[in-house]
Design a protein around this nucleic acid. Sequence first.
DNA 1: CATGAATGAGGTTTCATTCAT
DNA 2: TATGAATGAAACCTCATTCAT
Lengths: 210, 210, 210, 210
Amino acid sequence: LRRTSNKDGIRTFSTDTELVESRRAEIVDDATRVFVKKGYHETNMRELAHEIGKSVGCIYHYVGSKQDILYLIIDKTNNRGEHWIEGIESSLKTMSAKKVLELFIREYYTYTGIKQDATAFAYQEVPSLERKWQKEITDAAKQDIEACSIILRKGVRTGEFKIENITLMAHNIIVLGHMWAVRNWYLKKICSLDEYINQQTTIILRSITS
Amino acid sequence: LRRTSNKDGIRTFSTDTELVESRRAEIVDDATRVFVKKGYHETNMRELAHEIGKSVGCIYHYVGSKQDILYLIIDKTNNRGEHWIEGIESSLKTMSAKKVLELFIREYYTYTGIKQDATAFAYQEVPSLERKWQKEITDAAKQDIEACSIILRKGVRTGEFKIENITLMAHNIIVLGHMWAVRNWYLKKICSLDEYINQQTTIILRSITS
Amino acid sequence: LRRTSNKDGIRTFSTDTELVESRRAEIVDDATRVFVKKGYHETNMRELAHEIGKSVGCIYHYVGSKQDILYLIIDKTNNRGEHWIEGIESSLKTMSAKKVLELFIREYYTYTGIKQDATAFAYQEVPSLERKWQKEITDAAKQDIEACSIILRKGVRTGEFKIENITLMAHNIIVLGHMWAVRNWYLKKICSLDEYINQQTTIILRSITS
Amino acid sequence: LRRTSNKDGIRTFSTDTELVESRRAEIVDDATRVFVKKGYHETNMRELAHEIGKSVGCIYHYVGSKQDILYLIIDKTNNRGEHWIEGIESSLKTMSAKKVLELFIREYYTYTGIKQDATAFAYQEVPSLERKWQKEITDAAKQDIEACSIILRKGVRTGEFKIENITLMAHNIIVLGHMWAVRNWYLKKICSLDEYINQQTTIILRSITS
DNA sequence: CATGAATGAGGTTTCATTCAT
DNA sequence: TATGAATGAAACCTCATTCAT
């Protein structure tokens, strides 16, 4: 049996693209749960298969290796950059930068909070991806910062914001969003996600409002 | 299997406490370098031994397992909480909270920056420690936040600062320090550590100055 | 590390009970041959796997450890107590104790003689089992002696035998059976198993016939 | 440092024969205790050294390898054959074979009983000696049987005994002596060594008295 | 002579991956 | 397509032995 190769560069047995997509979605979602709970390196394929209710063989029909699953999980937490940018650019036409920033923070932090496990997991496991994929992942990550930068730049241009280093500020905003997931073991004891969003928004705005 | 154990609960064959201390220090320092470069899970004990110029057997004289090394590395990046607190409390007697905070940020970020690799490594690998040790590590981590909180509380009391949620703010300050290490792949392209410290100090102060 | 375990408390990855039974039977039989020839401690798992024509991984599907194999081998030479007792009790209803004892000796010694290697091996290796299993093994061993005691007691009651210490005599009969295997390096030079059985029967009967 | 070689063919660093003898005696006696308790294969040299209050290096000054110690232990439980024979032959000149046999059994069983641990240990570990030494050990073991045979032969000649197979009978007598040690886990619950000797003597004599 | 730190080959066991069914 | 038994390379760790002190 020859293995075919799809656009992700991840091998499959099946050529039925739709089936591959749907099975992969199942595998990735379930594996995220399992890996987050037990750890990627600490979970072997037999356990994974058992936990997600599939056979080892079945998994390998839709995915070329264990690391492929890791890649798919991490990739899924990241590939939103373009998505944000589109929305932001149109919003900026009708709203103040401050308003757009508030909305962006709420949306981004909520989104990250929903995918909390996967986000925390990504922080942890990116370094064990092959270098080739690390590049893809970090490129995607840069898009989030770029999206945020667009808002900040606009605000500075309109005089709403006063920011010394826009990229650094955008970076701060993005990583503080991630921290809800990464440091949830600490933060969940001091506030809810909603409070976190409100309070961080206040803090951020105070530090950039001119 | 008679092995003595020292205060860390980490097994060793040697009873010469001083030798154990010094050999462990060597192992931990060298292993940090190797693990950071190649990854903890991706480096096997033979490679590690070769890279650090010791034999496998020699390593296992001073350490009970591979994970013990991981623990010692992570522990070393964390056990400073009490240290900060002492200095802070005495400084607060003679300086303004603002001044102490500036000094604290500079010191903490510099310290974290020097141990950049170990700090980033800790973020990545804490989840693969046994639960027992995770507790120890997170307890130590809380002390850093507590140290910072002391300064913020004082500033609020003296009216220098205006802060809605002190713990959250302290948490922000601490994690932004860590981010220099964790996100160095991105940040090093936009500023130096010194610039990072200066700019973050400005941002933080703007967001809390009353 | 999810592994199911069957009634023996010996771990396996398979849930197919029948397959487990049959593969274990193969492993135990073949391993007995190999261990007897090369020694348990002197044979490593790679060699064992090679000699029995299975892969190392395959062995570990059906058995949790090397010592499990040792236990299964030793257990197999022992778990017959109940079996004997049944037959003995029914025989004693229709035959004289002397006749039953003669038959028992012949059967027991023949059985032990067939499993010569395993019997000798058990004498040698029981001490290297964990204490928990040593108990199981010695309990099983006691049943053989009990089986023999039943015959002797009956004979004493009917006046056929005159025995000072029935348990000791039963013990003698059983261990002299084992000795064919354990001391075969010596005994095989002086008689055949058949001669051994006949002559020991004569000796035993002379010492207990009233 | 070259290693010299003494008459046993066991290497030493020291050429001071007397010191070697006395240190070896200490090592062998203490090691017997340790190996009997924890098992030969289950005790490593570090543990052994610790338990017998010597350093690893010190042991290796007087003994060439771990197996050498095993050999010396086993050898010590066996090399008595000639000793018995001498005494027996002179006794037979003045006493009846029956009387000499009684004395022999008492002495041999007592001697074996005193060295119970070493005797049991020898049964267990002979197979893990190199073939060359196994030969030496079994040759020594044969001398015990030969010693006993001399008595039986004399008794048959004088008409005191009636024995079908003298060697087998001698073998029985010897191994029943060993069994006190080997099966002590069972026998100690049913009689004392003294009772064991008395009762076995009775049983043996009943089976050979004409 | 005595010590015990150091060595590294080799032990047992795990586990990603394959492939016959 | 789906299964899970089988594979064997490679992981972690042990331990008999050496040798500088």
